[in-house]
Amino acid sequence: MQTFKIADQTYTSRLLIGTAGYPNFHIMAEAIAASSAEIATVSMRRVKFTDTSGENLFALLRERDMTILPNTAGCFTAKDAILTANLSREALETSLIKLEVIGDEQTLFPDVEQLLSAAETLVKDGFTVLPYCNDDPITCKKLEDIGCAAVMPLGAPIGSGMGIRNPYNIQIIRDLVRVPLIVDAGVGTASDAAIAMELGCDGVLLNTAVAKAHRPVLMAEAMKKAVEAGRAAFLAGRIPRKLYATASSPETGMIE
């Protein structure tokens, strides 16, 4: 199966996994391993002076030789997202950034105007920008034109588990952009991830569907298989949909 490239890095797995919201650090670590993901997202937050847990996410991901993809989650303005990106580049020694500029707390939909402006500045500053965006073909095209390394439209609102709400838009985006297309957010279960891949996406980024599953490690494994199956189905080429039946067994040689 073809490998997948972001910027100059080649990946075998097309599943990108989030690290938030697991029952505990140990289950997170096991779920990430079960997913076979090679890219994991993290957030940048204030150091807690009282933290004595000894849990070090950065060390764990480094030890596993994973690509760390910091996000700008929680930023509502281009200005905050740019500062967060600069802090993450300094802290994690990576120019990769999952750019999120949120427009509204209830939906967590992106603020497109702020997103485009932040993307432009960060690309100019040498970042490899992976923007979380609406499933809007025009926005995706603009982000590609700005120089983003991928586009990451949402399937549905973050954490909603609603699946791919507008598969037709994802299909149009696939036709319109040449950079890697990654569905980010909205996946609820394995079939959602498979559908994203069957539509021709290059990858799927998910978090809550695994972290909040009853058995996160098992769901991580399911997601891995779904992404692989969906990719294979896309490459194989699905049959056209038809309203009426076409017999698959021979129609001649019947007993009389």
């Binding site: 989030g18 993290v42 957030s43 940048m44 204030r46 760390i68 910091p70 978090n207």
Partner: peptide, 9 residues
Amino acid sequence: EIIRAVQGG
């Protein structure tokens, strides 16, 4: 501001 990586999506 002193920041570090934490679990995130």
